[in-house]
Design a protein around this nucleic acid. Structure first.
Length: 502
RNA sequence: GCGGGUAUAGUUUAGAGGUAAAACCCCUGCCUUCCAAGCAGGUGUCGUCGGUUCGAUUCCGUCUACCCGCACCA
């Protein structure tokens, strides 16, 4: 891979993606639309290959996982049960003076009472010693105002509970002065829409912010029809939508994206630590199998005090992106929180009878959850290479053959010799029945090779005069080494099959 | 959302208050027996809206997008 990531790497990738038809800014003819991207002719192939590889390896090649494709808009109660309607919104507070922004539920305040008279307010950010800090501030305030009397108890409340008239009185934690904080403002990360002709509150629905809840909502259907036994998984690939405050870093964080998620249902008595480890290893192996270098992949285990209340553990697989080491996949052990929530809200039992242990229980889950677009960006980053061939600079995308948009390109050595062209076209048609291949007859052969290098086509196949006049062999040119070897047509099929699918 | 920066062809850039350029890319033809060759021809550009001006791509403002920082990322 590229040995170093220059600061302009992301810009170069963005340019290449646009120039060669991988990724375009959404709605570009109208000036673009922040947080959305479109996949062009090559991008859609790359994306499809990623999804196909995942589906084949996680669903088809495993006996314990089945697939699902649930709807994007689901009953709004699903999002109430999952906690997304409440918990997916983070009221925010801005300090107009320091330009800092806080989450309202992490900013605490209290009135300072002296002889039951409010002399002012104190504020602190959430921390283990927030109470002590607040009390110290209260003492300081009392001294500063030269107030006499008994200092009342400091009772901290978070900023979401502040009354409207208190907003202007509470000091900013940054400046210590009141008057610069805004009221809490709602940022619900779910996109809202209305189902049906009436646009009243009863018609509100949401675009799903994750595919996982579709799996939980169908869990019972799958159990009843799929002949599945604990442990088993349900996999889903699909679009998800989050109204991110600040989409950034190209397709890394966008408002519409695609997820590949598995909910892997296990017994409450299972050794979840062992299973979690197995999933982390399985996923790391999968990433390397599609061409991500092992040394660019990192495990990031969340400390226990940072976990969501229902999670037992969570490990991210992070990748060295141009903008830093960032999360690619989250592998969480979620207990049975989601199913019990749906059991409670729907009134339907989510229990399964496990023949092996003769027990009835609501299973726990391990959730490997991955972003397709992030995987694609990781693959682009890892594949992007600049080197020199014969003194000429070359840009090449070293995609694994399995995920490369085109598996091979077929060329007649020159296009003004009909037998060469006919033979090359026939070979192209033959390969096309099996793989996505590219045909190009125009221009110098070197130029055609380079053009394919830049879009990551692993093999160039050139029909030349030896092919038609001598032994029927073609030139096979390797993208990464630029080496050329002669190979017969029959060996060619086996070679490609082994390299692409092996 | 806030602060700063940026916006000229597909890309990288030049340019001037008075008809907008270059290189590369791309397309067509000729030529071409293996790594961006040559020749001939061709498509295509001042992000948006508004103001000042006889005239604005250029000056000013607005919006949008992108980049950096803050913040955010269940």
């Amino acid at each position: 891979m590229n040995s170093e990531h220059p600061s302009g790497l992301m810009d170069e990738l963005v340019g290449l993606c646009k120039r060669r038809g991988f990724i375009f800014p959404s709605s570009e003819i109208y000036g673009g639309y922040n947080g959305f991207y479109d996949y062009g002719p090559l991008g859609v192939e790359l994306k499809k290959n990623i999804k196909d590889a995942w589906w084949r390896d996680m669903v088809h090649r495993r006996d314990d996982i089945v697939g699902l494709d649930s709807s994007i808009i689901m009953h709004p109660s699903i999002w109430k049960a999952s906690g997304h309607v409440e918990g997916f919104s983070d009221p925010m507070v801005d300090c107009k003076e320091s330009k800092l922004r806080y989450r309202a539920d992490q900013l605490f305040f209290a009135p300072v009472l002296v002889d039951d008279q409010t002399i002012g307010y104190v504020s602190v950010l959430e921390s283990p010693d927030q109470q002590a800090l607040a009390e110290k501030q209260a003492h300081d305030l009392k001294r500063k105002l030269a107030a006499t009397g008994a200092l009342g108890a400091i009772e901290l409340k978070d900023y979401t509970e502040a009354k409207a008239e208190e907003h202007a009185l509470i000091p900013s934690p940054a400046t210590g002065k009141p008057g610069s904080l805004t009221p809490p403002r709602d940022f619900n990360l779910m996109f809202e829409t209305h189902v049906g002709a009436l646009r009243d509150d009863s018609a509100v629905a949401y675009l799903r912010p994750e595919t996982a809840q579709g799996i939980f909502a169908n869990y019972k259907n799958v159990v009843d029809t799929g002949r599945v036994k604990i442990p088993f998984g349900i996999a889903q690939i699909g679009k998800a939508f989050r109204n991110e405050i600040t989409p950034r870093n190209f397709i890394f964080r966008s408002r519409e994206f695609e997820q590949m998620e598995i909910e892997y249902f296990i017994s409450p008595d299972a050794d979840w630590k062992k299973l979690h480890r197995e999933w982390i290893d399985a996923r790391l192996n999968w990433f390397t199998s599609i061409g991500l270098p092992r040394e660019s992949l990192h495990e990031d285990t969340h400390p226990e005090d940072k976990l969501a209340h229902y999670a037992k553990a969570c490990t991210d697989v992070a990748f060295h992106f141009p903008h830093g080491v960032q999360e690619l996949e989250g592998i969480a052990v979620r207990g049975n929180f989601d199913l019990t929530q749906h059991q409670k809200h729907s009134g339907k039992s989510m229990e399964i009878f496990d023949e092996a242990s003769k027990q009835k229980f609501v299973p726990h889950v391990i959730e490997p959850s991955l972003g397709v677009d992030r995987t694609l960006l990781a693959l682009l980053t890892a594949a992007y290479t600049k080197d020199e061939v014969g003194g000429e600079a070359r840009t090449v995308l070293k995609f694994h053959p399995r995920i490369a948009p085109y598996k091979a390109a077929v060329f007649p050595l020159v296009k003004n010799k009909a037998p060469l062209v006919e033979k090359a076209e026939a070979l192209y048609r033959k390969l096309q029945r099996r793989w996505n291949v590219f045909y190009d007859a125009s221009g110098a052969i070197g130029r055609r090779y380079r053009r394919q290098d830049e879009i990551g086509t692993p093999f160039g196949i050139t029909v030349d005069f030896d092919t038609i006049e001598k032994d029927g062999t073609v030139t096979l040119r390797d993208r990464d080494t630029t080496e050329q070897t002669r190979i017969s047509e029959s060996e060619l099929m086996a070679f490609l099959e082994e390299r692409i699918e092996g």
